[in-house]
């Protein structure tokens, strides 16, 4: 540098020597605390690179691993929950519902398990869905709404072909079992009359007594042993208009549900049982 450093009169600090429209920039040195802080961050960064994973494929001296930390955290949390899970496993759903502490745990755990495993078909609040996914919040049960009934259904499922104790029997497709479509229409009219939503049909009544009453009962009161739904109420799994009922009789329906025994912890099945029972339709 050929130029002599220029000193600012007001501050006594040298300028950079540049001038922009009469404005000169002071060459004030950085405060030492600032500079040392900067050096400290460099030292920190170097130490970090050595100790922790910072470069690709390099683990770092400390061997820190967030995946392992997560696994450890999960194991710790599971161990913390184990005592209460053991009690939920050992007790019957009925006993769980009667014990305020267990019941609180069961409702909270059941809500989460329901959202994970059940809500896909039965809906977020157990409201069911058209097309064979029954509502669990109403007062109508195909296989029974007591604690034991609900737990059996969850454990073994329905017509899944994987569990020997699965619920459900097959209803014949009457279009292939000897009834004409006209006869099936008569039966459908009679079925609708059972709940007071359609006119009486004498021919249908006779056919119903011959073909349907064995499972569904003389007045359509249903049979939970074989999973024959009630026909005398206002709840229809596959639709309550004549076309839907006709289609059900002609071609049959067969909803399925997986068996959750073996897939879920028995404690979780118990919690689900208590939760579903409390949705609004639980029976004693």
């Amino acid at each position: 540098m050929a130029r002599k450093p220029e000193t600012d009169a007001a501050t006594g600090v040298a300028t950079t020597g540049h001038e922009w429209d009469g404005i000169r920039e002071l060459d004030t040195p950085m405060p030492s605390w600032w500079l040392y802080t900067f050096y400290a961050t460099i030292a920190f960064a170097l130490a970090w690179v050595v100790l922790y994973p910072a470069l690709p494929f390099v683990r770092g001296v400390l061997g820190a691993d967030t995946r392992r930390q997560l696994a450890e955290t999960m194991a710790t949390e599971r161990a913390k929950a184990e005592p209460i899970l053991a009690r939920l496993r050992a007790a019957t759903p009925e006993a769980i519902a009667a014990d305020p502490e267990l019941r609180t745990h069961a409702l909270a755990g059941g809500r989460i398990a329901f959202a994970t495993s059940c809500a896909g078909c039965h809906g977020a609040g157990g409201q069911g869905a058209p097309g064979g996914f029954p509502s669990l919040a109403d007062d109508d049960w195909i296989y029974g709404g007591s604690f034991d009934d609900i737990r059996t259904t969850i454990s073994h499922g329905v017509r899944n072909g994987e569990d020997a104790e699965a619920r459900g029997t097959a209803m014949p497709a009457f279009a292939q079992a000897g009834l004409t479509m006209a006869q099936i229409g008569d039966v459908a009219e009679h079925v609708l009359s059972l709940s007071g939503t359609g006119p009486a049909n004498a021919a249908g009544a006779t056919l119903f007594a011959e073909n349907c009453a064995a499972c569904h009962g003389d007045r359509g009161e249903g049979n939970r042993q074989v999973g024959a739904p009630r026909l005398d109420d206002r709840i229809w799994l596959y639709g309550g208009d004549k076309a839907s009922v006709t289609r059900t009789i002609a071609y049959s329906r067969a909803g399925v549900m997986p068996a959750w025994q073996g897939r879920l912890d028995p404690a979780v099945i118990n919690m689900l049982t208590v939760y579903v029972h409390a949705l609004g339709g639980g029976e004693q």
């Binding site: 609040g125 409201q127 109403d138 007062d139 206002r234 609004g280």
Partner: peptide, 18 residues
């Protein structure tokens, strides 16, 4: 009010809200 479901139809034709 519970919104899932907004209401439940009962077997006798009644309606229930939670």
């Amino acid at each position: 009010p519970e919104r899932a479901p907004p209401f439940v139809r009962l077997s006798d034709g009644g309606v229930r809200n939670a």
